[in-house]
């Protein structure tokens, strides 16, 4: 966010690119202020004094939740591919990928 706390037009365009959303200029103008409202609502939490509250990433104070290394039956190929929009030769078929190499 810019120093004023408002999301900039460039930031909206960048976020849209990261989310693979094709926004036209009108939409950028429309969604910017909407995102601003959300950010301001969340940023109200900064008004609280959290000096004594340890940062947390989970609601539960648990650690080391693991399972033993045992194989469990999963899906068949047919089941795995059943929800795919397209499949070919036992694989998921996806649109070609641009801009990156693999």
């Amino acid at each position: 966010m810019s120093e004023s706390g408002s999301i900039t037009r460039d930031e909206v365009v960048h976020l849209a690119r990261l989310a693979r959303l094709a926004l036209d200029p009108d939409e950028v103008d429309r969604f910017g202020p909407q995102l601003d409202v959300i950010l301001h609502a969340v940023s109200r939490i900064q008004e609280l004094d959290t000096a004594d509250v340890p940062p947390t990433s989970h609601a539960l104070p648990l650690t080391n939740v693991t399972r033993s290394d045992e194989v469990r039956a999963g899906l068949t190929q047919e089941q795995a591919l059943s929800g795919a929009p397209a499949a070919e030769d036992g694989r998921f078929r996806v649109p070609r990928i641009l801009g990156e190499d693999a």
Partner: peptide, 19 residues
């Protein structure tokens, strides 16, 4: 998840909802 890890298995047969 509990899916097997064998190399060279039949395509998309070592999969489950998690992976």
């Amino acid at each position: 998840c509990g899916c097997a890890t064998a190399f060279g298995a039949e395509l998309n047969t070592q999969v489950c909802p998690t992976c």
